[in-house]
């Protein structure tokens, strides 16, 4: 039994052999619960001047939204870049940072700004 084009586009149906039964299958991918960035009330903001590139925030982030970019810091260090689409704003990164380079800022400040710019995110 072939998988139809519309089913393939959704990427959700697997054919199990033998028997050829079509089964709904969850595929690993971002956004299993949508853009979880909407849950956030406080936004982590990284001060790259202070950051030493120690990787601790990357290691502890429970949502895996921090990506380490090698050699892009002001002193040539590796720096964390946060994906705000999915960051839930728990603040674990700010709490484990040994040099206090991550500040938790109220989300309302960013939402007001984004509204002005017409981002539609608010």
């Amino acid at each position: 039994m072939a998988v139809s084009e519309s089913e393939q586009r959704r990427g959700v149906v697997a054919v199990i052999e033998p028997g050829g039964h079509k089964l709904p299958l969850s595929m690993a991918g971002p956004g299993a619960m949508g853009k979880t960035g909407y849950w956030r009330t406080q936004r982590p903001v990284v001060n790259y001047e202070r950051c030493t590139g120690c990787y601790l925030c990357w290691l502890y982030c429970p949502d895996n939204v921090i990506e380490m970019v090698p050699g892009k810091g002001p002193r040539g260090q590796d720096i964390p870049v946060i994906d705000y689409d999915y960051c839930k704003g728990c603040g674990v990164c700010a709490a484990v940072c040994p040099v206090k380079a991550i500040d938790m800022v109220d989300e309302s400040k960013f939402l007001a700004k984004e509204k002005e710019e017409g981002d539609g995110n608010a």
Binding site: G29, G31, M33, D63, V92
Partner: peptide, 18 residues
């Protein structure tokens, strides 16, 4: 490689996803 993928359903600060 991400073994926990952004946008999962855990509460903020979840130790299990960690």
């Amino acid at each position: 490689k991400p073994y926990v993928i952004p946008g999962h359903a855990a509460c903020p600060g979840c130790p299990e996803s960690m």
